[in-house]
């Protein structure tokens, strides 16, 4: 009986802690967003964060997209060959990349790069009193550190995903034409004939949401970190793990919302 009560109490505590944490993150996000509409605005900081996310994440996102497109073409070809549907390879590649793999894989790559970097930078600022210093210098840390990064992440991710989509399709085309024997023109025609604008747009909406989530979790974990170097390390790990899980969970939710009739 006592054991059952202990277990129930532990579950209750965990549930309360989860709800409290979710509420705190939601309030953090709302405050950061509200600063986007109130001056002063830090355009220089937005630009710096935008370049960091969009430009410096480009190589890793591009490589991921190209190889994913190549693998997808190979796998779908060998799989579809079992029921004589090899002709659908181009369609599968383009739909998979634009609807799912482009935004999700780019999101996971950016979570590893940017979520970790933001958590480490802001966490270090927290433990070295730099965030307190901002307050004493008449500067709101949420406005200065969080709001520009959130905006930059939300805008930069869709741009990265457009590039990832193009490169992913190119990867599939390369394997399709060089290894699987498709004619270049036929492969491209099959790619674009079945592609609809909504396939691309839905992926870009997902990308914007993932960009927001990755930067939000990076900023939140850094902002609330403590306990010196170990605390910053924990914040960095939490930022990557939590944003990766959220990307996968939100991907399901968004897919269900956008594609379920």
């Amino acid at each position: 009986m006592d054991r059952a009560l202990d277990l129930t109490a532990a579950l209750g505590r965990a549930a309360i802690a989860t709800l409290r944490g979710t509420g705190a993150i939601a309030l953090f996000a709302v405050e950061a967003i509200s600063h986007l509409f109130r001056p002063p605005f830090y355009g220089r900081l937005f630009l710096r964060a935008f370049i960091e996310i969009a430009w410096f994440s480009l190589p890793v996102v591009a490589l991921t997209a190209v190889f994913t497109g190549m693998v997808l073409a190979l796998q779908s070809y060998t799989g579809f060959a079992r029921f004589n549907a090899e002709g659908a390879v181009a369609n599968v590649v383009v739909l998979s990349i634009t609807r799912e793999l482009g935004p999700v894989l780019a999101g996971l790559m950016v979570a590893g790069r940017i979520g970790a970097a933001f958590a480490a930078e802001i966490g270090t600022m927290r433990v070295t009193d730099q965030i307190d210093a901002l307050n004493t210098l008449s500067t709101n840390p949420m406005k200065y550190l969080v709001a520009p990064r959130l905006l930059a992440g939300t805008i930069a991710m869709p741009l990265l995903v457009v590039i990832a989509d193009i490169l992913g399709v190119m990867g599939g085309w390369l394997i399709g034409t060089q290894q699987l024997g498709f004619a270049s023109g036929a492969y491209l025609k099959a790619t674009f004939d079945f592609l609809q604008a909504w396939d691309v747009i839905s992926g870009l909406i997902k990308a914007a949401v993932f960009g927001f989530v990755v930067t939000l979790m990076g900023c939140w974990c850094g902002y609330t970190s403590g306990g010196g170097a170990q605390g910053v390390g924990r914040a960095t790990t939490s930022a990557v793990v939590s944003s990766s899980i959220l990307i996968l969970a939100l991907d399901y939710v968004l897919t269900a919302m956008m594609f379920t009739r």
């Binding site: 002063p40 930078e121 270090t124 600022m125 070295t128 009193d129 730099q130 307190d132 210093a133 307050n135 004493t136 210098l137 008449s138 500067t139 200065y144």
Partner: peptide
């Protein structure tokens, strides 16, 4: 708070900014 200045124990200088921007941070902000 605008009329208050603070010297932190470890300096708490902003690593990402050069010294001149640190010094004039409040005036620029």
């Amino acid at each position: 708070n605008d009329r208050i200045g603070m010297l932190f124990q470890n300096g708490a200088l902003f690593d990402s900014l050069p010294v001149w921007e640190n010094v004039c941070f409040k005036l620029l902000a």
